[in-house]
Structures are given as structure tokens and as C-alpha cells.
Amino acid sequence: MTVSPLSAMAFEDRMATTEFRVSGTPHIVVEGDSCRGCTTRACVIACPAGLFVPTFDGGILFNYEQCFECGTCYLVCNTAGAISWSYPEGGSGVVFRRT
């Protein structure tokens, strides 16, 4: 669990405030192997949901479940073919609150 010195709450608790209806099929697939040569790691910094986690061996671990579907990761990715991006199946994914 990572707590930023400036945030009053853990990142996991922050993400837990938003509803995600998780589909069984990932809508974003990250080819962790093609990330090994990447020097920028822009996705790790920029993804607002913090879904891209560097691994000890230089790869990237990705989990699609709490994705805002914003599109930032594919905009910043410099490695061709590393991220394949689509929308989750109808009815699933992020659901912002109505109340």
C-alpha cells in the first residue's frame, strides 16, 4: 500500500470511492514484454488510476479492472503494439455516480 506524503488517504481507498462493474474480458491488453525496452514509463506516471506497475525485472504489470477508460495510456505510450485499447463490453467498466 502506498501513501503519498501529500494525500490524506491511501490510493486504494481513493479508487474504492468509484464504482467499477468489472467485465470478465479485459478491454486493454498490455504486452508486458514489449515494455522492457521502454525508458520513459510514461504510463506509470500518467495513468490517473495507477494501473501500470513496474516489475522488478523491467516489465509492466497491468490490471484493467479499475480503469476510467480515459485513454491517457495509449496517448503517452511510445512503444508500438504495447497497448491494445478498446472500450469494455456494454454495461461494464467505470460507472460514475448519479447521486
Binding site: S4, L6, S7, A42, I45, A46, G50
Partner: peptide, 21 residues
């Protein structure tokens, strides 16, 4: 700015926490 964010070393929620403070 997405271009600026990707080359910064600060994550969005940290920048927002700073702004709120």
C-alpha cells in the same frame, strides 16, 4: 497537459493533493 504530465515525475493524484493543500 498530457505531454507535460508524461515527462513529469508527479502522479495526477499527488498534483491534485498539492492543489487542494
Amino acid at each position: 497537459s498530457v505531454r507535460d504530465l508524461e515527462s513529469s515525475s508527479r502522479r495526477p493524484e499527488d498534483l491534485l493533493a498539492c492543489f487542494k493543500a
